[in-house]
Each structure stands twice: as C-alpha cells, then as structure tokens.
Amino acid sequence: MASQIAFGLIAACMLCAGALAVTSKNLVHSVLWLAVSLVATAALYVTLAAPFLAAMQIMLYTGGVITLMLFGVMLTDHRHDVGVLNDSSRRMPGILAAGAVFGVLASAMWRSGMPTSPVIFDSSTAKLGALIFSDHLVAFEALSVLLLAAMLGAIVLARRHDA
C-alpha cells in the first residue's frame, strides 16, 4: 500500500513537472521544471532498489546538466524569444505525434506478458561496482574516452577563434 502511494506521488510529480518543462513560456522555468522531474526520477530509482543510481542521477543531472543548461540560457539572449518559444502552428501535429507514439507503446506493453512480482535481489553498490569492473570493463573504458572526447569537443567548439 505504501509503495503504491509513493509511486502515485512520484509519478504525478514527474508528469506534471515534465509537462510544465515542455510548455513553460519562460526558459529558465522550463529548465527548473526539468530539474524537478529529474529529482522525482531519482526518488523512483530509490523505490526500484537502485540507490546508487539515484545518487548519480542527482549529482550528474541536477548538479551538472541543469547548471550547464542554466548557463546556456544565460549566455544566450532569449529575451525576445519568449513570446514565440512555442510554435502554436506545430502544437496540433506535436500532440498527434506524441499521442500516436504513446498509443503504440501502451498497446505493446498491454499485450506483452511482464512478470508482475519483482524478485528480491542483492542490488548493493558493491555488487554494481564489481559488475562494472568485471563484465563491463571494456565499455567503461570506452565511456571514459567518450567523456574526454566530449570535453575536448566542447572546448574546441565554444572557443572564440579570434581570441
């Protein structure tokens, strides 16, 4: 019962914040609503036996991505874009496309036979770390190269060439 209430609250929070994030007229508000939605996701991870992921979600997303996006909003002038932030001529096609995708996904889920009772399993951070550094070691190293490439790429792209 308690888990149902928690899921309902988190889901309501997440969906409302997500809807406001894509419709808000003010871009700063939109980014902050995205942050609310991402924190609600971290709470959902806690209920799904993934505490380490919840911590990473808050550190990387709300700590890193949201700060970066706010910098992005403030470095680019968006004052005269506020009135035209959403293209109203695209609203109907947008709703139709999103609704169609949702219909397809929901019907597929409805027909698929999913096990409903989750198994009890050891999801400690120690086990997660052991799994990353044994089975997924190559992917982990490749990811570190990707992060380095992204960092260098961002510096090279955003550098002023006349300076």
Partner: peptide, 27 residues
C-alpha cells in the same frame, strides 16, 4: 511492471511533444 513502463512512455511522449513544438534550441 506495466505501471513503470506506462509512466516512462508518458514521459517519453511529453519529450516528443516538446522536441516538436519548441522553437528555442535549449528548449
């Protein structure tokens, strides 16, 4: 499980709507 999948599908579709209607690149 379907509850989590439905929630994630709804969130994904909100994202699709936003990506199609936003005119601001950061949006």
């Amino acid at each position: 499980t379907q509850a989590y999948l439905l929630l994630s599908a709804a969130l994904f579709c909100l994202g699709i709507f936003g990506a199609l209607t936003r005119r601001n690149a950061i949006g």
